[in-house]
Design a protein around this nucleic acid. Structure first.
Lengths: 132, 132
DNA sequence: TCATCACATGCGTTTAAGCAGATATATGGG
DNA sequence: CCCATATATCTGCTTAAACGCATGTGATGA
């Protein structure tokens, strides 16, 4: 088990959370898997920018990706570390009272492929053994 | 009424939390007011560096300072925003399971003036929720 | 094989943050 | 006043991250 000073790890998680675009991406992934094309459409920002922020989140261990044909689907990784998990839960929960975040989710719901959602409740499991 | 998009505010809070030194400072201030000289002594880092990080935390609205003679005492500001408060609570709670953080607090307890601790003294802005 | 779609990544630039060391400000005491 | 103490801020440097734009890469389909 590699440990690497918890406070350093935690600081890294917060760095990943310290950007409004990345928070919006996490909000859209809350409880579901989302295709990159929808991030681009809903946030209305350039695709390279979105990809770069997704790469940042992935490098921080907050999300993972799955390829399906030409498309990449991103989802939130359940955190093995209890502290990180509780913090991430608090963050995701806080989005419920944010108008912008609500609006983003509403737009994702209206987007056609939102039906192909893979629901993974964020509260319960804590495996750490799901990879790309 | 200053609003400033919640997600932007939240990102700012996370930026303030994205440094290991600042997390250690917050841990030491959890539930008590602490004098700058003890931060310097316990973290074993230069005074200008400590002051700069404290200024960052203050600018982010996470802590406030009170002058007492030659000394400055810093304490955590109870967050008025519910989302920020719950996140900060989760962060502070997570320190309980971190060895480094525990050691820092133990050293503060042993430092002589730790008995002069004023738990939440004068003029708290918005007592919405109290950490620990 | 080649064109195309969906993403990822490289490049150059700008901005912000981290650090150490030096200096400025405020307070209390002689 | 002047000095020492405690803390804050400035300087100069280095690194990281954000952005737009251009290009590379993997998968699909003709």
């Amino acid at each position: 088990m590699k440990h690497g000073s918890k406070s350093a790890d935690l600081a890294g998680v917060f760095a990943a959370l310290s950007d409004a675009t990345r928070l919006r991406l996490l909000n859209l992934m809350n409880g579901r898997e989302v295709c990159v094309c929808y991030f681009v459409e809903i946030l209305g920002q350039g695709q390279p920018k979105i990809s770069r922020h997704l790469a940042y989140l992935r490098k921080a261990g907050l999300v993972t990706a799955r390829r399906e044909g030409k498309w990449m689907h991103y989802r939130i990784v359940p955190q093995a570390d209890e502290a990180t998990a509780s913090i991430l839960d608090a963050v995701l929960a806080s989005f419920g009272s944010d108008r912008q975040m609500q609006a983003d989710r509403a737009r994702l719901d209206r987007a056609c492929c939102a039906r192909r959602t893979l629901v993974v409740p964020v509260g319960a499991p804590r495996p750490a053994a799901l990879a790309q």
